[in-house]
């Protein structure tokens, strides 16, 4: 598309109106910043930003109200993670009686925060609401190793998620209330 240029008047071609309006705008800003507190800079370490709702910060794991790790090691987040930042070690075949009717929880869960791009796919894909992008945006460490967050760290940073559905607990209660017909 060719945009037709507007014909400039003689005065405009002398640049004077442009100079004048440029001077006006800059002078106004200068005055505002100096005397009327028009500064927009946030002086970071002292002034902190209020993280808005729905902000996508670092992904952390959560526990439910009964202190159960919500993650069941389905590895969908590992699969969906575009930069391959998530690495999950599944529990393996040994039956862990402490997991109850959930049967499964990750043996290890690592997120490489240096690789993470905070896209939120893991949260979106999680069928158990076990991983959430929280409000941490300033992640620092002194080594690459330190920036690989393990399960303990992710859980302690993630805290408790007050899930109202409580799928597994409900299932357990339902099963207990029914007469089970054991084959033997």
């Amino acid at each position: 598309m060719i945009i037709k240029r507007t014909e400039l008047s003689w005065l405009e071609r002398m640049y004077f109106p442009t100079l004048w309006s440029g001077l006006r705008v800059t002078a106004r800003h200068f005055y505002d910043t100096l005397f009327r507190g028009g500064r927009v800079t946030m002086e970071y370490p002292e002034q902190r930003w209020t993280v808005p709702e729905g902000y996508r910060g670092a992904p952390y794991l959560v526990k439910d109200a009964e202190d159960r790790t919500k993650c069941v090691s389905c590895q969908l987040c590992e699969f969906v993670c575009p930069p391959k930042a998530i690495k999950i070690t599944p529990p393996g075949p040994a039956v862990d009686p402490t997991t109850g009717n959930v049967e499964k929880r990750p043996r290890e869960f690592e997120i490489n925060m240096l690789r993470c791009i905070f896209c939120g796919f893991c949260q979106e894909v999680c069928p158990e609401e076990a991983i959430f992008l929280m409000k941490d945006y300033s992640l620092t460490g002194l080594s690459r190793k330190e920036m690989i967050y393990d399960k303990e760290k992710l859980l302690s940073l993630g805290g408790v998620h007050n899930d109202q559905i409580r799928k597994w607990k409900k299932k357990e209660a339902e099963a207990a209330s029914q007469e089970a017909f054991k084959p033997e």
């Binding site: 800003h29 200068f30 927009v40």
Partner: peptide, 13 residues
């Protein structure tokens, strides 16, 4: 400093 003031910033401080 001047550019900061013109652009509503703080400048070196």
């Amino acid at each position: 400093k001047l550019s900061a003031l013109i652009q509503n910033r703080v400048g070196p401080n």
